[in-house]
Write a protein that binds this DNA or RNA. Sequence first.
DNA 1: AAAAAAG
Length: 615
Amino acid sequence: MRTSWADSVANSASENAASGSSGPRPTRATYIPPHLRNRPPSSDFLAPPPAAPSLGNDRVGYGGPAGGSRWGGGGGSASKLDSGRLGYGSGGRGGGGGWNNRIGGLERGREREVNPFDNDGDAEPAFDVQENTGINFDAYEDIPVETSGKNVPPPVNTFAEIDLGEAVNQNIRRCKYVKPTPVQRNAIPILLAGRDLMACAQTGSGKTAAFCFPIIAGIMREQYVQRPHGGRTVYPLALILSPTRELSCQIHDEAKKFAYQTGVKVVVVYGGAPINQQLRELERGVDVLVATPGRLVDLVERARVSLQMIRYLALDEADRMLDMGFEPQIRKIVEQMDMPPCGRRQTMLFSATFPKEIQRLASDFLSNYIFLAVGRVGSSTDLIVQRVEYVHETDKRSHLMDLLHAQRETEVNGKHSLTLVFVETKKGADSLEHWLYVNKFPATSIHGDRSQQEREMALRSFKSGKTPILVATDVAARGLDIPHVAHVVNFDLPNDIDDYVHRIGRTGRAGKTGLATAFFNENNLSLARPLADLMQESNQEVPAWLTRYASRVSFSGGKNRRSVGARFGGRDMRRDGSFNRGTDYYGGGNNSSGGYGVSAGYGGGYNPAVASAWD
DNA sequence: AAAAAAG
């Protein structure tokens, strides 16, 4: 009876490193990507751009952003998706011939393209197929959606309504996506229309696909774009930035599925890993580059990557990317390197939280953008049961032990359920992991002082259930999609309520239920108020003692003072009276009260002139 | 004050 947890999940660790096996290499004089075969040569999907007379220059073989239209090209080959955008690359040699010279993944990349649907998740076999068929859509009914900005394209209800191309459609089927999630329904038409976007939507609700599909479809219909070649510099067309290496990897994995057999090449670069391998990947061609900021800056400074052809810029976890630690670096990448300026690229910012201050910073990167807020599954955190317990610092470990034992009882069919334990410091993570280890708990840890190899191994081991307890710092707080996390424990509460929101969002994903337990004590007083508000807002039981703490510190006006509702979905700061750039977005009537909440602000009170979509 | 991100 003293079997360790690890025993119950033996054999589930399949470390499949799907790579290496280089299959037969097809040799074709002129490669036609699958999605374009059997098409009449002049289908409007790939209308030839106007031939450009002199393009001898190997270094800069494209018209450059100096041209007249938004994308610098004059080719007005109309697409119903976005006319203004097609003519961009005046560099193509007429008739689409340009793409023989395409540096992107078409010829060299695709020949070795691994089927990303083969090795779908190490842990999957251990779980019911039912559970994995994606998202619980019932949980997404009646979710509040708010949009603002000028001329907001209407949402769609099905993937069929949007023309993403046959290859992408097939990948959507392979992903078993039946219908778009609310954020996808709203964001995809906006992005396909070429608009800049600031979107608040909970991760786990299909956010990555919401920006990947339009990027991939956009690149596909501009396949002929001629990029500079020669030298070792590569010129990606899209850049996706994220705040952690693991998140960038995850986005890359997903994007590869969406781009499978489209001819669009996705590459990821991040720090802590050997750069040479990444350089080789880049040399084989890149259309969509997924990156963490530091490594990207490095590569641009080495002139191995140029941003001058970037036409799609996506910031995932955008509020984190623009907070104090990251902002200078992001500003450097977006404003001080060779990226086309705002207005000549399409910029999309996504996060589950979007504080007003950060929205203000972000607006520097955006042009006439649309703000989109999608309330969380179940209109707030109904799917996550949140508990707060008063635990003295000295009692935390024994209390955690109780929780872990209780969690073990809840295992279904002998299957492990995963527990993610957040601590505040790297040192704290090490010491708690060690203590768990000493006490025979199958735990591992992830934080920024561990080597990248250790970090990735820890994540794999956790996902697979080999070590169903993961102690983590905030490195794991955002974006990571780890199926089957049943319990998130805030062993140390964060100082910022938004971090709390992101942390508990690691459970209750894709419409499933989850449990979040927080240890609160005298060190967390500043969080009492926002935490109590948040819990109340999401219909959670708020302990009386917490309410007392909350009212006691009600005068404190610190950074957690932000009004209710700035979290889920959030609110367009342009609606705020205090913010006025001389542009009246709302035709006058201005709702200046900060209060907006699932019940109060949504829906009511907006000026009828504002395009506001409700599902 | 801490975490993350380049080496």
